[in-house]
Amino acid sequence: MVLSENDAGKRLTSAAAKGDVAEVRRMLEECRVHPDTVNEFGKTAIQVMMMGNTSMASVLLENGADPNIQDHFGITPAHDAARTGFLDTLRVLVDYGASLNVPDQSGALPIHIAIREGHRDVVEYLAPRSNLGHQDTRGDTALDVAMATCTPDMVELLKRQLDSTLALQS
């Protein structure tokens, strides 16, 4: 079956959003739909999938989906996984080359988002992999965000990571 690019994008993203891994796999392998084909809203399957579905993420990434694709706000799948707290999906994204230091339109890295959302396990994973000196458009680093959100455990975690990074650099 030959699909127009418009139909292919719509069907692929719909299947991804529903969590239908078998249909996504079929479209990628049998219909040879590129995993970054966009739907009518300009979104790809990895951008609309349920972030808790690591199987979906794996199938899309194994078939060449761009783990660093950004929407018009600069949001990447890593930002979405950090926002929603799905650490397993974030790990899959990183395994397939997702950068954790790509800022969104507001200059926020995934770690900024995870701190704001209170996902400590995600912050713990991101801290050693993120540029902790990066400032968002307001000039806030990850530590500044943690202090502003009054999360002492995250402040301590980030301070330890910063100390560890400085010790390695000396």
Rank of each mutant, 00 (worst) to 15 (best):
G64F: 07
L162G: 03
A81V: 00
Q105S: 14
L60Y: 08
A78E: 01
M147C: 11
I111A: 03
R26E: 14
L87T: 03
I46Q: 07
V24N: 09
A16H: 02
D66G: 04
A15W: 00
A82F: 00
A65Q: 03
L158V: 01
V94K: 06
M27F: 01
E156H: 04
P128I: 07
A57I: 04
A22C: 07
G118D: 12
V48C: 09
M50H: 13
S130V: 06
T84Q: 12
P128E: 13
M50F: 13
L157Y: 13
P35Y: 07
E23L: 15
L12M: 07
R91D: 10
P152H: 05
D140G: 05
P77D: 04
A22N: 13
S14A: 12
A98T: 01
P152I: 02
N53K: 13
V155Y: 01
D20Q: 09
L143W: 10
K159P: 00
R138Y: 08
T84M: 10
R120N: 10
T151R: 15
S14D: 11
A17R: 07
V21M: 05
N101T: 11
P128R: 09
M1T: 03
L93S: 03
V24C: 12
T37P: 01
V48D: 03
G107V: 06
L109E: 09
V48K: 09
A127E: 08
S4D: 15
N63W: 00
N6K: 07
Q169D: 12
T54Y: 13
A167Q: 14
D20G: 05
P128N: 14
V33D: 05
T44A: 11
H119M: 13
P152E: 10
C31S: 13
D136G: 05
S4V: 06
M147H: 07
A65R: 05
A8H: 01
A148V: 00
G85S: 06
N53M: 08
L93K: 05
R26C: 10
K43C: 10
N39K: 06
M1I: 03
T89A: 12
Q169P: 00
L93F: 01
D36S: 07
L166E: 14
A108P: 00
I113C: 04
A65P: 05
P152V: 05
S99T: 09
G52Y: 04
A148P: 00
D36W: 08
T89I: 00
N63K: 15
D36G: 06
L168T: 04
A57V: 04
G9Q: 02
H79P: 00
A8Y: 01
L90A: 01
S164K: 09
G52W: 06
C31Q: 12
E23H: 06
N53R: 13
D88W: 01
L132T: 07
